[in-house]
C-alpha cells in the first residue's frame, strides 16, 4: 500500500451558477520516501490538489488514503490532528509568526501535539541543526534573511517527524542562489528517507525531483514513473549541486 492513495478524486466549486472542476477524477499514488514534484500553470488545480493532500480541504468526490487512514470524510478535528502529526507544510511566504522567536515558531506544532517542554526543546534544536540554524533560536523571523526564514519554516515542518512534507513554491520568494540552497536542503532531506512533495509552476525546479506530475485542468497530464527509464539519475544530473551558503 502506498503512503498516499488518491482514487477518482474530484473537487467541484460552484461560482455564480457555473461549475468549476478544480480536480477532475484524479488518481495518484505517492510511495513512502519519494521525492515528487507537482507542476502546473496557475489555475491548473495543483494548489487544490496540495490542499486536499495536505488535509486542509476535503474532496467533493473520491477517496484518499494517507498512511493507512481514510481522510476524504474525516472530521475537521481529525484533519487537524493528521496535519499536526503526519504532515509538514512549507509555504512560499514562509508563514512564520512574527511575534514569536525561531524557537517558539518551530516548537508550535509540538505545542499543539501536547509535547512536554524538555522534549520540545530537544527536538526543536535537532530540527534547527538539520537546517543549519541552531545558533539563531532566539532571533525573531524579521531578523533573518528570506532563506533563513524558509529554513526555519522547514524545521517547523519537520519537528513532529511527519510522514510527508508539502512544499508550496518554497523558492518562489527567494533569489535564485538562495532558492538553489533550499532545493539542496530538500534533496538532502530526501536522501535521508523523507517523503517530500514539491508544488511549483517552474519546470526547472521540478527537474530536481526524480518524479514529476503535471496537472492541467484538474487532471494529470504527464505521468513520469521513476521506476521506468531511470529518470532519477537524469534529474540528479540536470541540476548542478550548489554549495550551501550557510
Amino acid at each position: 500500500m502506498a503512503l498516499v492513495e488518491l482514487r477518482n478524486v474530484s473537487k467541484i466549486y460552484h461560482l455564480g451558477g457555473e461549475e468549476i472542476r478544480a480536480l477532475d477524477d484524479l488518481s495518484l499514488d505517492i510511495e513512502s520516501g519519494e521525492f515528487i514534484s507537482i507542476i502546473g500553470p496557475s489555475g491548473s488545480g495543483k494548489s487544490t490538489l496540495m490542499h486536499i493532500l495536505g488535509c486542509l480541504d476535503s474532496p467533493t468526490k473520491g477517496t484518499i488514503q494517507l498512511d493507512g487512514t481514510m481522510i476524504h470524510n474525516a472530521s475537521s478535528r481529525e484533519l487537524a490532528r493528521i496535519r499536526n502529526q503526519k504532515i509538514g507544510f512549507v509555504f512560499q511566504f514562509f508563514n512564520l509568526l512574527p511575534r514569536l522567536n525561531v524557537m517558539q515558531n518551530v516548537e508550535l506544532p509540538m505545542v499543539y501535539a501536547g509535547a512536554g517542554s524538555r522534549e520540545r526543546h530537544e527536538r526543536v534544536m535537532a530540527a534547527l541543526k538539520l537546517v543549519g540554524l541552531e545558533n539563531r533560536s532566539k532571533h525573531r523571523p524579521m531578523q533573518l534573511s528570506g532563506g533563513q526564514q524558509q529554513r526555519v519554516a522547514i524545521a517547523r515542518a519537520l519537528v513532529n517527524n511527519p510522514r510527508i512534507v508539502f512544499a508550496d513554491e518554497p523558492t518562489g520568494n527567494l533569489d535564485s542562489n538562495t532558492g538553489e540552497a533550499i532545493l539542496d536542503l530538500f534533496r538532502s532531506l530526501s536522501t535521508q528517507g523523507r517523503t517530500i512533495a514539491l508544488v511549483t509552476h517552474d519546470p526547472e525546479i521540478a527537474a530536481v525531483t526524480p518524479r514529476r506530475i503535471e496537472i492541467r485542468d484538474g487532471k494529470i497530464a504527464i505521468k513520469v514513473d521513476p521506476k521506468l527509464a531511470g529518470l532519477d539519475r537524469v534529474s540528479a544530473r540536470a541540476v548542478p549541486a550548489v554549495a550551501s551558503p550557510y
Binding site: L56, R77, N84, N95, L97, P109, Y112, R156, N160
Partner: peptide, 16 residues
C-alpha cells in the same frame, strides 16, 4: 487571520 490560518495549518484544532 493569517496567523490563525498558519496555526490551523500546522495542527491547531477548533478548540485550540
Amino acid at each position: 487571520i493569517r496567523e490563525i490560518g498558519i496555526r490551523k495549518a500546522i495542527g491547531a484544532t477548533f478548540e485550540n
